[in-house]
Design a protein around this nucleic acid. Structure first.
Length: 863
RNA sequence: GCCGGAGUGGCGGAAUGGCAGACGCGCUAGACUCAAAAUCUGGUGUCAGUGAUGGCGUGAGGGUUCGAGUCCCUCCUCCGGUACCA
């Protein structure tokens, strides 16, 4: 700590304070400290990619860091640390290409990421750093899997799964978007492969129930609810005509039963082969064959045009005994409900499309609500004539049999009535269904956690004993996945063989590995007790730190990590291993940071290296065409990627942090504009020069202990109030703007009060910690300001004797007058009416109404 | 289609129903300089006017209110998510 620059020099002071914090373990979180209130603040830990940190990472990390620093100064015992979600595809793909072991690549990338994160001066307790690929960590990931397995929540499945040939692995439903892989956007096909699956569906209701109590973004909560997709309806049994078979359908609209004109089974439905008549067999078999080979992608793309075949069989509608044809079609999914539906074309758009295409009867059983119908642009007579489809509320008709009539009832009431009646008659039962499917938990990859499972020679599956954990991932030469889905670990011949130490029985280890989500499902629990080699975590410490008070990260994991992890946590809760049913009380998504791009007149994006900026306008370097600027996602091809290292090198970490927080509200999407960094850098330079003599590096002689003017004191207290409230609510952009206002005023003063300067430094410190520590030290303090008490404001100091108030005439501001701060309504009106600027507006007119809001304004309504 | 979020100067954005545009960027004039950079001081929604000042202005249209960027209704656009889930 020998450098002592005279001017503001982040390159010198930032490494100095980073070293100081490291050496003194300034940000150590103290387990079970009962003297302070605990606060657990969590960032989504990164996947340490080879590309290094991008500008999006530090946005969330800076936001949490500021909050942590602020809360420490307010007396909290803060747990805030960092780790590495390091299993995953890129390291493995790099290994396949270069032969470098993923562990080596990962270690290298972790080192790069750590170095970069340290440059930002984040107040992490680095002693708690974790890495999901560390056997000391994944030992406990395997242990938690054992718990799930013992509880019957993990099972082997041979059902067709989402197989991605390009990635050489299967994917969970959540990882497949429109028939393509979320990672890499490769086509995904259905293929039967032996898999391990976790029974997340057992927790569907609990996962749904928990959502409402969470302080999370509304959108994310909705997404989870939709993904879980609870629906209520009824299962209804239809007898197959001239057969003993019964087909059970699921419907959310039992009220429309009298309008069912046909039935559809999923092509994979087990009864299809039994009921198909000989004359229809060839066509049906062909259709089933086409569906089977069709990829998910093709199936999604085909949604506009319905396809299907008639089985030749008929079903009997149990409410009116009408004989209806049974079809098969891939618009009915085998995996949802019962895999069979009753089709009511008059009141379901999909059924309507199908019926129209195949000329099936459409029977309307409901008079639509005329107003809603008109608003939707549908003619009532078309609906009644079966020429249009109506799916909303209406009044039932043609819906009665000998025992029950729904005629005249609205949808909700008739649903209730028919369901009760069917239940009594034993033809239908009220049923709840979920869209949520079980979680496909195995991958045919090398770089992941091995399962603690062994396939024994006697055909049983053996769970490896806790004492034998971790099942260490073997070193291999060849990591390549195979096209047939056989995992790479099947080639680890020595590792594969297992002998149970207790019984001496032999078997072969499970060769699938766990998906990347496994490690991130519980990392926040390991931070609590990262070095414990006896337990995953100490229950006492868990009770002290959990739940997480604030979790900040991107919105992209709304139905992946954020749902999986809640599931594991709920299982752990049911096992009595954690003390709260939900892991994260409060969640915030930081908005994405976009780059600046340019488009030509046709709207085509132009890479930034082809853009020429002149006179505030932009031109294409080659064509000379004028371009317009617009924000766009950062991408290598557009050459608009901002590298944090370069920004820090040029301006320093404090400027970087300040800029990212000053750009706009944390949760919003914001475009990066490097010129904006100049602004905050200028601000920090002026902060420095407000306190430090740039010729000597000492505190300016203008800084003294003389009492402040009333105005100065008021601004100081206003600033304390505003900054305190804004930091607490994570409104950092407005907190920074208040600090700028303070600086603008105080730097104009010839003399400045030392206490005011110290207070300002403390207020600035959560956001720009390095410069603040340096100034704090130069102002004569020997210790870090990280635990200095946060400044308090005095309400009395905020008060003014006289304030300016606006006088409006008919709602238009016409005058600004000075009034005593404590003037009441009547006094205000008297002053206003007497004021010279007001008189011309009211003289000779009738005053209709007078409004006076003390401290705000006066409005006089005249005629 | 459905769900969620957002539309405010040249740009990022600010405003418990109470002076729209804080703060910053950019631009602009001036000071300093031989000059430039940096720095400092002032100006900067728009239209009219030398000016004080006045008209207009928060995606569009309507409504509630003494008063609406903010609340309500209808619509448009953009972003994110999701989609044959019966």
């Amino acid at each position: 700590m020998t450098t002592r620059p005279n001017t503001y020099s982040p390159a010198e002071i930032e490494p100095k304070w980073q070293a100081f914090w490291k050496e003194n373990k300034t940000f150590k979180a103290v387990d079970c400290d009962k003297t302070r209130e605990k606060l657990y603040v969590l960032d989504m830990f990164p996947y340490p990619s080879g590309a290094g940190l991008h500008v999006g990472h530090p946005e969330g990390y800076t936001a949490t860091d500021i909050w942590c620093r602020f809360k420490r100064m307010n007396g909290y015992n803060v747990l805030h640390t960092m780790g590495w979600d390091a299993f995953g595809l890129p390291a493995e793909q790099y290994a396949i290409k270069t032969g470098t072991h993923p562990a080596i690549t990962t270690a290298k990338n972790v080192a790069t990421f750590k170095k970069q994160l340290e440059m930002f001066g984040f107040s992490f307790d680095w002693d708690r750093e974790i890495n999901t690929t560390d056997p000391g960590y994944y030992k406990w990931t395997q242990w938690i899997f054992s718990k799930l397995y013992e509880k019957g929540l993990a099972y082997e499945s041979h059902e067709p799964v989402n197989w991605c040939p390009a990635l050489g692995t299967v994917l969970a439903n959540e990882e497949v978007i429109n028939g393509r892989s979320e990672v890499g956007n490769f086509p995904v096909v259905r293929k039967p492969i032996r898999q391990w699956v976790l029974k997340i569906t057992d927790y569907a209701q609990q996962l749904l129930d928990g959502i409402d109590g969470l302080d999370w973004p509304e959108g994310t909560k909705e997404m989870q609810k939709n993904w879980i997709g609870r629906s209520t309806g009824a299962e209804v049994d239809f007898k197959v005509a001239d057969s003993d078979e019964t087909i059970r359908v699921y419907t959310t609209r039992p009220d429309t039963l009298f309008g069912a004109t046909y039935m559809v089974l999923a092509p994979e439905h087990p009864l299809v082969s039994k009921i198909t008549t000989p004359d229809r067999k060839a066509a049906v078999d062909k259709y089933i064959d086409i569906t089977r080979t069709k990829s998910d992608l093709a199936r999604t793309e085909d949604t506009k045009e319905k396809t299907g075949e008639f089985t030749g069989a008929y079903a009997i509608n149990p409410v009116n005994h009408v004989k209806i044809p049974i079809w098969i079609s891939d618009y009915v999914l085998v995996s949802y409900g019962t895999g069979a539906i009753m089709a009511v074309p008059a009141h379901d758009t999909r059924d309507f499309d199908f019926a129209t295409k195949f000329n099936l009867p459409i029977i309307c059983i409901m008079t639509p609500d005329p107003k809603a119908c008109e608003a939707a642009g549908i003619k009532v007579e078309d609906v009644l004539a079966g020429k249009a489809c109506w799916t909303e509320d209406g009044v039932l008709m043609n819906s009665s049999n000998d025992e029950i009539s729904l005629d005249g009832l609205h949808v909700a009431d008739s649903k209730k009535a028919i369901t009760e009646w069917m239940h009594k008659k034993g033809i239908g039962t009220p049923t709840v269904n979920f869209k949520l499917r079980d979680w496909l938990f195995s991958r045919q990859r090398y770089w992941g956690e091995p399962f603690p499972l062994v396939h024994m020679e006697d055909g049983t599956i053996h769970l490896v004993d806790e004492s034998e954990l971790p099942v260490v991932l073997p070193e291999m030469e060849n990591y390549k996945p195979t096209e047939d889905g056989e995992p790479p670990l099947a080639r680890a011949t020595e590792w594969l063989n297992y002998t149970d130490p207790k019984t001496g029985k032999k078997g072969k280890r499970e060769t699938n590995t766990m998906p990347q989500w496994a490690g991130s499902c519980w990392y926040y629990l390991r931070y609590i007790d990262p070095h414990n080699d006896k337990q995953a975590w100490d229950p006492e410490k868990e009770k002290y730190w959990m739940p997480v008070d604030l979790y900040v990260g991107g919105a992209e994991h709304a139905v992946l990590h954020l749902l999986y992890s809640r599931f594991w946590h709920k299982v752990l809760y049911d096992l009595g291993l954690v003390s709260h049913p939900e892991p994260w009380k409060r969640l915030i998504h930081q908005g994405m940071i976009l780059g600046l791009s340019y488009k030509d007149q046709r709207g085509v994006l132009v890479p930034n290296d082809l853009v020429d900026a002149r006179d505030g306008k932009y031109f294409h370097k080659e064509t000379g065409e004028e371009l317009t600027q617009l924000p766009a996602k950062m991408s290598k091809s557009l050459k608009n990627v901002v590298n944090p290292d370069e920004v820090i090198k040029k301006y320093g970490a404090d400027s970087f942090r300040l800029y990212e927080m000053f750009m706009g509200p944390l949760r919003e999407v914001k475009p990066w504009n490097t010129e904006g960094v100049d602004g905050v850098n200028r601000f920090l330079n002026r902060v420095w020069r407000m306190i430090i003599d740039v010729n000597t590096g000492d505190v300016l002689p203008d800084i003294n202990d003389e009492p402040m003017s009333k105005e100065a004191e008021r601004l100081l207290h206003q600033t304390i109030k505003k900054v305190t409230e804004d930091i607490d609510s994570l409104s950092y952009n407005t907190a920074i703007s208040q600090l700028m206002i303070f600086l603008n005023e105080f730097s104009k003063m010839p003399k400045r009060n030392r206490k005011a300067m110290e207070t300002f430094v403390l207020l600035l410190s959560p956001m720009a910690p390095h410069i603040s520590e340096e100034l704090w030290q130069r102002l004569g303090h020997n210790d870090t300001l990280a635990y200095a008490p946060w400044p308090k404001y005095d309400e009395a100091k905020l008060k003014l004797d006289e304030i300016q108030i606006v006088v409006q005439i008919n709602g238009k501001p016409r005058a600004r007058i000075m009034v005593p701060a404590d003037a009441d309504k009547d006094a205000l009106l008297a002053i206003a009416k007497a004021a010279d600027e007001v008189k011309p507006h009211i003289d000779g007119k009738t005053i209709v109404k007078e409004i006076a809001v003390p401290g705000r304004l006066i409005n006089i309504v005249v005629k």
